[in-house]
Amino acid sequence: MKSILSGLILLVMSQAFSQKPLRYLALGDSYTIGEKVPESESWPFQLTAYLRAEGYDIQNPEIIAVTGWRTDELQDSIASQDYKPNSFDLVSLLIGVNNQYQKKPFRTFKTEFEDLVQTAIALSAHDQKGVFVVGIPDYSLSEFAQDKSLKNVSSRLKRYNRYIQKISQRYGVAYYPLQQLSRPLHRDKVMLAEDLLHPSGEQYKAWVESFKENVAEQLKQF
């Protein structure tokens, strides 16, 4: 009996030590890389820090994102990486604000965004359980938007976010909205980076606070 018990303990220990750290891929644009803030203050890195504090062994996020990217540019970059399916445990997607800002056809966004969700699911080793989508924040109240006299930003972003939520639900992917949360934050300079458009680390912290526990719950399903 003692030898059997010892064997079981060794088996459990070997399995625990053989488990690899979780891999996280963050897909997006300026909001994902944290334009104008230190890397550690971007929301993917803040989320990762929280998950580690909760006891999850997770690597630093691998980020595919560039300021100004639209959905098509993100698609092209992912394709160039030649990732194998199931390469990551966790995959996040936040994209679309530049489609709106650059006034690209909404129908094109719809097709490309759905393709990106499918790609994210394919890249996760846990299918849709390992993916989450973050809605587009509302920059309409930022000083930048006010100075540029940008009109109808909020209503246009609502259209994008409604579709983002629809596709997320269609594919059974977690969706974390930001539009209502971010609107008042963009009035406060403390919540903005030096360009008075992009979020500061403090705003990213508020974003993470809104969905970090949900993401942790997702990881429990792995």
Rank of each mutant, 00 (worst) to 15 (best):
Y139E: 06
A193P: 04
V173L: 06
K148G: 10
I136N: 06
A145I: 00
D188W: 08
V190T: 15
Y171H: 15
L196I: 08
P184W: 02
D138T: 01
L197K: 03
Q165G: 14
K129C: 10
V153L: 11
L150Q: 06
V153R: 10
V190N: 15
Q169L: 14
Q146Y: 08
K129H: 07
K158S: 14
S142H: 07
S142T: 06
D195G: 09
A174L: 11
Y139A: 09
D127L: 13
F144L: 09
G172R: 05
L196T: 03
Q128D: 11
G172I: 08
F132I: 03
L197M: 06
D127T: 12
R159Y: 12
S182A: 06
L185H: 02
L178D: 00
D138K: 01
Y176D: 05
Y176V: 01
S140V: 00
Q169I: 08
S149R: 14
K158Y: 12
V131C: 03
S140T: 00
R162I: 13
A174T: 10
A145E: 03
V133E: 09
Y171R: 08
V173W: 04
N161I: 00
A193F: 02
D147S: 11
K189A: 13
G135N: 06
F144A: 03
K189L: 13
R156K: 15
K151D: 12
I164L: 07
D195I: 02
R156Q: 15
L150Y: 07
G135W: 06
H198S: 09
K158F: 00
H186D: 07
P199Q: 02
L150R: 11
R187E: 13
L150F: 12
Q169C: 07
Y160D: 04
R159F: 09
L141Q: 11
H186R: 05
K189C: 08
I167A: 07
H186C: 03
D138W: 04
Q169T: 11
Q165W: 05
V134E: 12
R187T: 14
V134G: 07
P177S: 07
I167N: 04
K166G: 10
P199D: 02
D147L: 09
S155T: 14
V153K: 05
L178M: 10
K166T: 15
I164W: 10
Y176L: 09
K148N: 14
Q180I: 13
G135I: 03
I167E: 03
V134R: 08
L197R: 02
L192V: 01
S149D: 15
D195E: 07
S140K: 08
G172L: 10
Q179N: 05
Q179E: 12
S154K: 08
D147Q: 12
N152D: 15
R187A: 12
G172H: 06
V173H: 02
K189H: 13
Q180F: 08
K151P: 07
R159T: 14
R162T: 14
R187N: 15
E194T: 15
R183V: 00
E143I: 11
L185R: 01
S155E: 13
R170H: 15
V153M: 13
R183N: 00
L178F: 09
L196S: 11
